[in-house]
Design a binder for these strands. Structure first.
Length: 309
DNA sequence: AAGCAGCGCAACCGCTCAGGG
DNA sequence: ACCCTGAGCGGTTGCGCTGCT
């Protein structure tokens, strides 16, 4: 037995919404809310539309305070940073940009922003800036990277190198023998983060991990990146425990490094990687300091209110 | 002016997850 | 514990618009 369809496809209208349909839906939802049942809603108001279609139309177009187009430089930067950090989790990214929908951001990223950023990569490569050599280094090593590293991870790595200009650390990519060892380090750090009951405990245990780093390979690049991971993890925790906000560039850089390597763990999806590593909690309970000028906490609350009809 | 290609966006599809029975 | 249903999400598609030849 297959999955039951969400609506009677034969009697459902598809394609663009007419102004009349929009008006009906808008009027009803503004007056009565969705009643927590999108499937039943179109029948109630006499729309020959699928409930999912109604929901999408409301969330992406009819909902109050929606903004379309005209993305600012700050929004560009925030989207880029978040994408590099967490990938294509558009709903989470949208939660940081009040008035923007996940669909809008997804479209904007795929059609404009990605090209804009990669364009910058090419420009800087042509001009021979420091980041260009790193970017080309990563490109040259794509072939040698372990199978299973997704295109998304590669893309994010490339963008990461471009945006953060991480000096030195990515030379680790020239040492395939270190990949799995680094992955083990990442696992240790994350399990500490996950298992610890509070920030103080995490800091204590991560400090211990840092002090036992000599048990790991002695290549300078590996030491540098290992320290980088632990330091940035500590930085994130300390910042969070002090003011409830994560340290954007550092935490995101940390997560970027780990996700890149985690995805080399053949067979396990990157989705598993994110489970329990705290990023979701960070995203849902605090905000990124790069947006402090935009008062993100207030904006996030406004966004939630916008959805919670 | 017509044809074509590329782009941007709205909408759809199919999947996962959570909650209730 | 299992099944069913609905919500939500990310990926993909299709269509209209625009600019170029």
């Amino acid at each position: 037995m297959g999955k039951a369809p969400c609506c009677d496809k034969a009697n459902v209208k598809k394609g663009p919404w007419s102004p009349e349909e929009d008006a009906k839906l808008k009027a009803y939802v503004e007056r009565h809310g969705t009643g927590g049942n999108w499937i039943a809603l179109p029948h109630k108001i006499g729309l020959k539309r699928c409930g999912k279609s109604c929901r999408l139309r409301w969330l992406n177009y009819l909902r109050p305070n929606i903004r379309h187009g005209g993305f600012s430089e700050e929004e560009d930067n925030l989207i880029s940073s978040l994408y590099i950090s967490i990938g294509s989790r558009w709903s989470i990214i949208a939660a940081q940009l009040p008035g923007r929908t996940d669909n809008d951001i997804k479209n904007y990223w795929n059609t404009k922003l990605k090209k804009k950023l990669l364009g910058r990569c090419k420009e800087s490569q042509a001009s021979g800036s420091p980041s260009s050599s790193q970017e080309s280094m990563v490109s040259q090593n794509y072939e040698g990277l372990p199978r299973g590293l997704s295109a998304s991870a590669l893309e994010r790595m490339q963008l990461h190198v471009q945006l953060h200009g991480l000096q030195g650390s990515l030379s680790l990519l020239n040492e395939p023998a270190l990949w799995h060892k680094f992955q083990n380090l990442g696992n240790r750090v994350l399990s500490i983060q996950h298992d610890s009951t509070n920030a103080d405990e995490s800091v204590q245990r991560l400090t211990e991990t840092s002090s036992t780093m000599e048990s790991l390979p002695s290549q300078p690049e590996f030491d540098e990146l290992s320290s980088f991971v632990v330091e940035n993890t500590l930085g994130g925790i300390e910042t969070s425990s002090l003011n409830g906000a994560c340290s954007t560039s550092r935490s995101m850089t940390f997560n970027m490094e780990l996700v890149s390597f985690r995805e080399t763990d053949g067979g396990r999806e990157s989705e598993i990687w994110w489970a329990g590593n705290g990023i979701d909690e960070q995203l849902s309970t605090s905000s990124w300091d790069s947006t402090s000028a935009m008062k993100p906490e207030t904006m996030f609350q406004e966004y939630l209110l916008g959805y919670d009809l």
